[in-house]
Simulated scan of single mutants.
Amino acid sequence: MIVLGIETSCDETGVALYDTAAWENGDLAAKGILGQGLHSQIAMHREYGGVVPELASRDHIRRVLPLLDESLAQAKLTLGQIDAVAFTQGPGLAGALLVGSAFAKSLAQGLNLPSIGVHHLEGHLLSPLLGTSAPSFPFIALLVSGGHTQLMLVSKVGHYELLGETLDDAAGEAFDKTAKLLGLDYPGGAAISKLAEKGQVGRFDLPKPMLHSKDLDFSFSGLKTAVLNQVKKWDAGELKSPEQMAQFHADLARSFVDSLVAVLVSKSEKALKQTGCKHLVLAGGVGANQQLRSALNEKAKKGGFEVHYPPLELCTDNGVMIAFAGALRMLADSKGLSKSGAFDIKPRWDLASNNLT
């Protein structure tokens, strides 16, 4: 079965084609990726310091059809060879989601094909199954994508239990806000991580919010506020040289990253111990952060568990993860398939509420 996947939840337009034969035959799941196209809107949104929903929606409209043509050309397929269409139904920006839903539903109806709405976070947490070292079920998923920071127990495809989540700012939001405080461009994650590599360890004693709480929830607004306080303190002091300013920013970035990573690693290890799982999946945009990956790998050596990552190119939003998640859902239970033309979206959507029965 060849599944077309369409992702338009925020600021990336992704289209991909996935063949379930690789998964069903027990081969490396990534072999099923037949073709894909991806366009990032980062350059467009950078001058505004963040995503502008209206601009995002309009750009999805411009990009989705050329990306479909690109994916079909890579796969050497025609529209007539597609068996089903999967699309991101939520969560995300309403206008952006509507573009993907309308395109997917219209295409499916025109070709008389079934379609399936996919939860954006399900796409992320299943994407490590496409890596060379795929996890075994059950596993713990640390999802750090955009406005989401969650720990999920994944029993099997379509069976998810929320163990903990952020109570305010998500990790990705904390990265972006801290980057803005340090004068870095949007998006902040990669910029902060790169700057932190030049920083001195331990110069600033920043908080590690909820590190010792008994639950598995997160909170990063206080960490961002602590960075703001350090910036204000610096600005109120004596005039410093550009070199001193640059080092201050690097040291503060390093302390920020170290504090945030310490919380994510500690909570993940606690989730593994509480559930008895031996496999941890890191997924989402922040999953590409090298400091976080290094810290998890080090903890895994000492803790006796394995960490699994999606391929780096699949950490950000993409069509492959939606095609793949949709395909696995179809194989597990065909009840979610639809031939309705309704452009239904779910900008706010609890992943656990979408479990298969």
Rank of each mutant, 00 (worst) to 15 (best):
C315S: 11
L292C: 07
C315F: 08
A300F: 04
N297F: 13
A295D: 06
A288Q: 02
F305I: 07
K301A: 10
L292T: 05
P311V: 03
E313Y: 11
G287D: 03
M321E: 02
A323V: 11
N318C: 06
E298C: 02
I322K: 02
K302W: 05
A325C: 09
R293S: 14
N318I: 05
L314P: 03
Q290E: 09
T316I: 01
A323F: 12
Q291V: 07
G303L: 12
C315Q: 07
K302S: 12
H308M: 10
D317L: 09
H308L: 11
G304Y: 01
S294F: 07
L312R: 14
L292M: 08
L292D: 02
K302T: 13
A325S: 13
L314G: 03
K302A: 15
M321R: 04
E313V: 10
N289V: 08
E298M: 11
A288H: 02
A295E: 06
N318E: 04
G287F: 00
H308R: 09
Q291F: 11
D317T: 03
A325R: 03
L296P: 07
F305Q: 05
A288V: 09
A288E: 03
G326D: 04
E298A: 10
E306D: 14
T316K: 01
C315E: 01
A295L: 13
C315A: 15
F324Q: 07
V307G: 11
V307W: 13
G303D: 09
A295V: 09
E313S: 15
D317P: 00
I322G: 08
N318T: 05
A325T: 00
T316F: 05
L312Q: 13
M321D: 04
V307K: 15
K301P: 00
Q291N: 12
A288L: 09
V320M: 10
K299M: 13
E306A: 15
P311Q: 05
L314H: 03
E298F: 12
A325K: 08
K301N: 11
Q291C: 15
L292G: 04
A288N: 03
A295P: 06
K299C: 15
F324E: 00
V307M: 14
L296V: 08
S294M: 11
A323S: 15
A325Q: 01
I322D: 02
A323D: 08
I322H: 06
M321Q: 08
L312K: 10
M321W: 10
E306F: 15
G319M: 04
I322E: 04
L312V: 14
A300P: 01
E298V: 06
K299H: 14
